[in-house]
Design a protein around this nucleic acid. Sequence first.
DNA 1: ATACGTCATCGAAGCGCTTCGACAAACGTT
DNA 2: AACGTTTGTCGAAGCGCTTCGATGACGTAT
Lengths: 335, 335
Amino acid sequence: MRTVTIADVAKHAGVAVSTVSYVLSGKRAISATTSQRVMRSVRALGYHPNAGARALASKRSNVIALVLPLRAGMHLPVLMQFATSVVTTARQFDHDVLLMTADEGPDGLRRVAASALVDGLVLMDVEIHDPRVPLLRELGEPSVLIGFPADASGLTCVDLDFARAGAACADHLASLGHREIALLGAPNVVYKRGTGYAERTMEGFAEAGHGHGLTALAWPCEESFDEVCATVKALLEQHPGLSGLVVHNEAAVGHVLGALRVLGRRVPEDMSVVAICPDDVAERASPSLTSVLIPAADVGYQAVRLLMAKLEGVAVPDSTLLEPRLTIRQSTRAR
Amino acid sequence: MRTVTIADVAKHAGVAVSTVSYVLSGKRAISATTSQRVMRSVRALGYHPNAGARALASKRSNVIALVLPLRAGMHLPVLMQFATSVVTTARQFDHDVLLMTADEGPDGLRRVAASALVDGLVLMDVEIHDPRVPLLRELGEPSVLIGFPADASGLTCVDLDFARAGAACADHLASLGHREIALLGAPNVVYKRGTGYAERTMEGFAEAGHGHGLTALAWPCEESFDEVCATVKALLEQHPGLSGLVVHNEAAVGHVLGALRVLGRRVPEDMSVVAICPDDVAERASPSLTSVLIPAADVGYQAVRLLMAKLEGVAVPDSTLLEPRLTIRQSTRAR
DNA sequence: ATACGTCATCGAAGCGCTTCGACAAACGTT
DNA sequence: AACGTTTGTCGAAGCGCTTCGATGACGTAT
């Protein structure tokens, strides 16, 4: 069973090959009757355009690359959510997604760009000093970054507004009358690496806290139960008046609750807890956690939307920040 | 800056286009001197073959599809590990990976196959009655499944040997002298759906347990802390002599430890716990957990390796089962 | 010397599609 | 009635690559 080509469709419909092409692409006006006849033939023969031929002739592959970093301490579930939303959105724009990991290094990006395998790139989890960024500038390939590098000039970036997410947590705790609050963040290695969102959350939290006249501390936090326990214990010893805790570390959030339980602090009676994490994690905890969610699906959608606009030659804003949304559950209460 | 084509390379090296092609593909003998001259030109010009043209002429896109299901209760981190190992391995074979989600339905698979966008498919997380399987048969596209459907005849499948994983846990607990043991598995919905690996683990566990003359129970387990707590409590009340627990539920494993703590059972003094989960989760717990790990990276590697063999026309075994490996840590001890 | 492989290379014919210019037919304008 | 404009369709020229058969230039056997 030879595969069906556009010539087969043309013959079947009794028109020229180019007419079939124009019916399918809509790039020239074709009469309704011809158009219908062609479409009927397309369906009758089960025609699917050959991707390679199309790419060769049109200089568009209708594929975008999704470039994942492969780093320690990354939050796999959230990455996965990003990825699926990028795929789903790309399909809505009639594009497919090529999955790349950054471990192939710069050459990988160079390769897919130069071979015209992809029309554009979405880079996930971009850091302050991300090695992929200079290369991106050099390639001049249409791209969208998820996250913000130090120098974002000339690039298109999308992310949750982590500063406001941190601030929202502080605001919420302040409004409940808490006077001493703390943020437990990512493991130390993440800050050392210069991960923008982690730092921005801390800054937003501290600034908002101080704005309300509160004591607002920010500590990194490792992810094993024992280390979390030790950190929480030290925190409570050094600041006995602490009554509000923000956890920005998905892997540690369960352990923080366990640690508080072990240390005899009830949530929310003795300690209010806010998490920055996906909703399912917040809901699975006991008590369910007041949280700011990371809108992975929306970020992925926006990234693809912006990339598609760029591919169409439409100008897009350099920077897109998504509003955080705080959901109140059972883990916070007035002091 | 026009992109460099094979004709540019040929001119630069003073040879015919076809000679360049043969140097690059190695499909015909080319003298060492010519070959070197061509390679020098390739590097000098920074030539990368156009993927579309290559695919059109050779009928091979050098891209494989990775098809993810999108279901509730899936272990996102494990999926992600699979995915990255598939990508990495594919690159070793000079292939790229197109990421697809099953939510596009059968038409998605049909589309990429018919359009020659991909040379083959890797389907992840295949279930007993997976709707993608009949379609796959119909398409006749080279493919490898991760997981086992009810009828695997004529298909190539890879997976961890979950039955032996369950058995390994039971064996280990039996060897430590435990007489009443239980398995806490996936949420009920997963079994209802007919998820092969979950059922096979249970069966392997129960069979091995009974083989050792033990009482071996298998319960499903929801993933919220409160439900885990209730389940563990009920289990202990109904079976006071229980001294060994196997947890095959990544999301719940932390909660199980928390529940035991709350219920006043020490691990491992009062209760030995074995987990079936990735190493990092086992190591992050307190105490660190004796575990059977899901060899995601190896499964991904094997899947791609098998697919590449099929693409080369080499016959491969229908079924590849990976041996489980049990790592002893601090959560189990002799009774 | 002649015929015959072997080796290295070339030229040309596609692969299946898009797109450009051409062109007839149908329409509106004066 | 003669002339521009649209409108709808066609044919042909590529896009950049692979691959097949042809062609010399050799070395070796006759």
